[in-house]
Amino acid sequence: MNKTILFIHSAGPQGPNQGSSNLINYLEQELENSYQIIHPQMPAPEDPKYDQWKHQLEKELSLLNGEAILIGHSLGGSVLLKYLSEHSCKLTIRGLFILASPYWGLDEEWQLADFMLQHHFADKLPSIANIFLYHSRNEKIVPFAHHQAYAKKLPQAAARQIDGDRHLFHDGLAVLVDDIKGL
């Protein structure tokens, strides 16, 4: 039986070759024989609202049974961390993978209040044995300082610093595939 991955995509356009679509396609190719990747369309990705994304995430999580792997790309990672730290989740989370996610409230550029985490969010996360953080060192969209803030709040996480300036990972992310397979 295939393992289940729930992938929550980034904000912005979600058509072919946009947003998280190429990264999802890459993961589907690399993991096709052992993993089922669910990547729901999130509401209004070009004008996201936390409550709308939260309700869609609740719906998706309620459809899963047993163990699952959760991947959040950019805004999707922020939403996963916020939801998991504020709501109970009966699902066993085998791994949580956060890619290039903004840490809302960290600086004046990133101030969407409805996406901000509670101060002690890390203490309120469910028990997750495997947490991974990925971020390009020279990224232009979400500054690397956001990755460093998450790494500080989540010292148990494996923090992967990626060379270059990629945010969308259009050509894939081999270390992510290796980490998933290593669970």
Rank of each mutant, 00 (worst) to 15 (best):
N22W: 01
L23F: 09
Y26M: 08
L27Q: 06
E30F: 02
L31Q: 08
E32Y: 13
S34E: 15
Y35M: 06
I37G: 01
I37T: 07
I37R: 00
P40M: 09
Q41P: 00
M42G: 00
M42W: 04
P43R: 11
P43Y: 08
P43L: 09
E46L: 10
E46F: 03
D47K: 12
D51E: 15
W53D: 06
K54M: 01
K54G: 06
Q56A: 14
Q56R: 10
L57N: 05
E58N: 14
E58K: 15
K59D: 09
K59I: 02
E60V: 07
E60P: 08
L61S: 04
L61C: 03
L61M: 05
S62P: 01
S62H: 09
L63N: 12
L63S: 13
L63H: 14
L64C: 12
E67F: 04
A68G: 12
I69L: 14
I69K: 07
L70Q: 08
L70A: 10
I71P: 09
H73I: 06
S74H: 00
S74D: 02
G76Y: 02
G77A: 03
G77I: 04
S78V: 00
S78K: 02
V79G: 03
L81A: 09
L81G: 10
L84F: 01
L84H: 08
S85R: 01
S85E: 04
H87R: 13
H87Y: 15
S88A: 11
S88W: 09
S88V: 13
C89K: 02
C89S: 12
K90V: 06
K90A: 15
K90T: 14
K90F: 12
K90H: 09
L91S: 01
T92D: 14
T92K: 15
T92L: 11
T92N: 15
I93N: 12
R94K: 15
G95W: 02
F97E: 08
F97S: 05
F97V: 02
F97N: 13
I98K: 00
I98M: 07
L99R: 05
A100E: 11
S101A: 15
P102V: 01
Y103L: 00
W104D: 08
W104F: 09
G105S: 07
L106M: 03
E108Q: 11
E109H: 06
E109F: 08
W110Q: 07
W110S: 13
Q111F: 02
D114P: 01
F115C: 02
M116Y: 02
L117N: 04
L117K: 00
H119A: 14
H119D: 15
H120R: 12
H120M: 08
D123E: 15
D123M: 13
K124P: 00
L125D: 06
L125M: 03
L125V: 10
A129T: 12
A129L: 11
N130P: 02
F132P: 01
Y134M: 04
Y134G: 04
H135Y: 02
H135T: 03
H135K: 08
R137Y: 13
R137L: 13
N138C: 09
E139K: 01
I141A: 11
V142W: 09
P143V: 05
F144C: 04
Q148G: 03
Q148I: 10
Q148K: 14
